[in-house]
Nucleic acid binder design. Structure first.
Length: 649
RNA sequence: GGGCGCGUAGCUCAAUUGGAUAGAGCAUCAGCCUUCGAAGCUGAGGGUUGCAGGUUCGAGCCCUGCCGCGCCCA
């Protein structure tokens, strides 16, 4: 579609630049400000004006001359003292779209995306949702572009957060393994119970600092892997992971593999990485100062080497305990297939669509095992607060001599989800005077301060359900609920995607619960409208005409002489281009923006043209084809966003 | 103290990475429902892009200095 023609035009100008000026400059194409200027603008002449010491308009004219004719392009003209404006051959473009052009060729190499990564010690909150939705949408974007992607969800089942909940159950509440097992099977959600317990345990530590000894002994047992506390840790973490996967499935988010911290420990990933780091002199044993006895990475490795006295990063503490960064480096090496060790895997969850999630294990299984890791490019979806640690991990790769992999280790960062002061009030939280003046308040799992993911989703579903039941009282409740769920999840995914990554989301119920304006349901609604036209057609006993035989080149030329129709069509043809652009800039919000723009455009078309009552036979077929094309593009774009199209709205 | 990021309409955000007249939604006001269902559409008002300089054909975007806010490291 649009993207193919775009690529051809770009290539033609590249060749032209080489032929006429002998230059291989990087340049972009853009959309002209006004539609009357044409479909694509090439601003490259401005770029060259300085180096060539010639006026942009002159360069542009020469370029147009040397490029000559491009298939699918009707005209090129120089305007605005240097822009080259390009007009498509409308009928020819429509015909290529009608015939359906090639799907993107599958690209070599595997991309690994790690996202979600929630500590398995409590219920997921909205911050985790932003992570998972961003990660999942980026996965969908890459796959739509023909890339092979593996989705990893790392499980830190041996960390401090799990230990604190285990300590809470054991020391604070004196619960046995059997007691906790009973809670898991009980009526109340286990992750919600842990949410409260985690907050209570944290508060207890604060009031009784000596109780921190609980954490230490729990961590010790977990690391050793035996004893009641270690068993309890597995019980808690395994069950909460199941709940997290179910929560994410509500939002159409799936995973391929769950690498766990426990296997990183048992399979001695760190030991392998440690040897590598020592061998290649990436870290050294500090002999003096506050870090004496620690293995550290010199600061020059991960910061500008301007200041000599900056702090180096401790990788192994003097007591021999490895820090998080150390383990992260080992895991990152494994993702690239550079560690020389591997996990074993067993089945975890089987989704209804047949997709199998695997989880790491520490011994060989009987069943044939899949291959994970060994990626070419690795994206870590982690919030911006972890930037420093991510930099250290990349510096580790670089210090080991893996500079290519270091460059292809991408911290896919995003800003946090905070709570608006009004939202805090809604939740019945009392804020300090200082906090109340802030634009937003940070979520804190330790304080139990936050909006639980499932609570929010339930609230959205019930809001949507009320509306659906009101609009479609004729349908049964189960079907109404199914529709309401799709609308609710569409609203939530869109809400989390419409902000660019480095915008802090100050969460607000009123905004998130809105189904009007720039929202997921708005886009879903226009897709439903397009489908309804075909449903109506079917109800009248008519069949969809064969557009390929019914619409000729001449017919397209006639109908696309109408500027409005042409602009509608043009917008709809850009879905692949929008996704490609968004992928290049790593910004899923751009796909969301395009989806909204596409829906707006379709709604305009819908109001401006009555399809089924159109008296002219050929024009009616043409409008039906337009409707079909809009429907397809809306569905495709929504599927990239992971948003379903409800049966009705 | 050091590092990273942010500041755009009353509010929440965009702006194709330096491009043509800075755009959307919400809110406000004025209109459009015998139905391809209004979760929609049309229109109006609302801007010195925090402030002051600089770089160039061109700056919301780049550079410098302030002011305000947030996060991370110590």
């Amino acid at each position: 579609m649009f993207h193919n023609l775009e690529k051809n035009i770009h290539a033609a100008f590249r060749d032209g630049l080489l032929a006429r000026f002998g230059l291989d400059t990087d340049f972009g194409l853009e959309q002209p400000r006004q539609s009357s200027f044409g479909e694509i603008a090439v601003p490259v002449a401005f770029q060259l004006a300085r180096t060539l010491k010639q006026p942009p308009a002159k360069i542009a004219a020469e370029l147009v001359d040397v490029v000559g004719s491009i298939p699918g392009v009707a005209a090129m003209e120089v305007a605005g003292n240097g822009y080259i404006n390009i007009r498509f051959d409308r009928a020819a473009f429509a015909e290529t779209v009608l015939k359906g052009d090639a799907v993107p060729a599958s690209k070599p190499g595997k991309t690994i995306i790690e996202h979600t990564n929630i500590n398995p010690n409590k219920a997921a909150h909205i911050g985790h949702l932003r992570n998972a939705v961003l990660g999942d949408t980026f996965v969908r974007m890459l796959r739509a572009g023909g890339r092979r992607v593996e989705v990893q969800n790392y499980i830190d089942n041996t960390g401090v957060q799990v230990a604190d909940v285990v300590a809470g159950f054991h020391f604070l509440e004196h619960k046995t393994l059997a007691d906790v097992a009973a809670l898991i099977n009980g009526a109340e959600r286990f992750d919600f119970i842990c949410w409260e317990l985690y907050a209570r345990t944290s508060q207890h530590y604060k009031d009784n600092p000596e109780a921190l000894a609980w954490r230490a002994s729990t961590l010790h047992e977990i690391e050793a892997g035996t004893g009641e506390l270690a068993d309890l840790a597995h019980l808690v973490a395994d069950n909460i992971v199941k709940l997290h996967l179910a929560t994410m499935l509500r939002l159409n988010i799936q995973y391929d593999v769950l690498p766990r911290e426990s296997e990183i420990l048992h399979l001695k990933f760190w030991a392998a990485a440690f040897e590598l780091l020592k061998d290649r002199k990436a870290i050294y044993l500090e002999t003096e100062g506050k870090n004496a006895g620690c293995w550290v990475m010199p600061s020059s490795a991960f910061r500008g080497d301007d200041e000599a006295n900056e702090d180096s990063k401790v990788i192994v503490r003097s007591n021999g305990i490895v820090t998080y960064v150390g383990k992260d480096i080992a895991y990152q090496l494994w993702k690239f297939g550079l560690l020389g060790r591997d996990f074993y895997y067993r089945h975890h969850t089987l989704y209804a669509d047949g997709h199998q999630v695997w989880v790491s294990t520490d011994h060989r299984q009987d069943l044939p095992e899949p291959e994970f890791g060994n990626g070419e490019t690795v994206y870590n979806v982690i919030d911006v607060r972890q930037s420093y640690l991510q930099d250290v991990v990349v510096a580790g790769l670089k210090a080991l001599g893996f500079s290519g992999q270091a460059e292809r280790s991408i911290h896919f960062s995003y800003e946090m989800v905070a709570l608006s002061p009004r939202c805090c009030a809604d939740l019945g939280m009392t804020l300090s005077e200082e906090d109340a003046k802030r634009p937003y308040i940070e979520v804190s799992g330790r304080k139990g301060l936050g909006v639980k993911a499932d609570d929010l989703m339930d609230k959205l579903v019930s809001t949507a359900f009320t509306e659906v039941a009101l609009r479609h009282p004729e349908d049964n409740e189960a079907a109404q609920l199914a529709v309401a769920t799709e609308i609710a999840m569409g609203a939530l995914r869109y809400f989390l995607l419409k902000f660019t990554r480095n915008t802090v989301i100050a969460f607000d119920f009123q905004e998130a619960l809105s189904f009007e304006g720039e929202t997921g349901p708005y886009v879903q609604y226009s897709a439903v409208r397009a489908r309804n036209i075909f449903r109506k057609l079917d109800a009248r006993g008519e069949t969809i005409p064969d557009f390929t035989t019914a619409l000729s080149h001449e017919a397209f030329a006639r109908h696309f002489a109408d500027e409005d129709l042409w602009q509608f069509f043009l917008t709809a043809s850009k879905s692949d281009s929008a996704v490609e652009r968004a992928t290049a800039s790593g910004e899923p919000a751009q796909v969301a923006k395009y989806a909204f723009q596409l829906a707006q455009t379709y709604n305009n078309f819908y109001h401006q043209f009555q399809v089924l009552s159109e008296p002219d036979a050929e024009r009616r077929i043409f409008l039906l084809w337009m409707t079909d094309f809009f429907r397809l593009q809306l569905e495709r774009t929504l599927s990239v966003l992971g948003i379903a199209v409800p049966a009705y709205m």
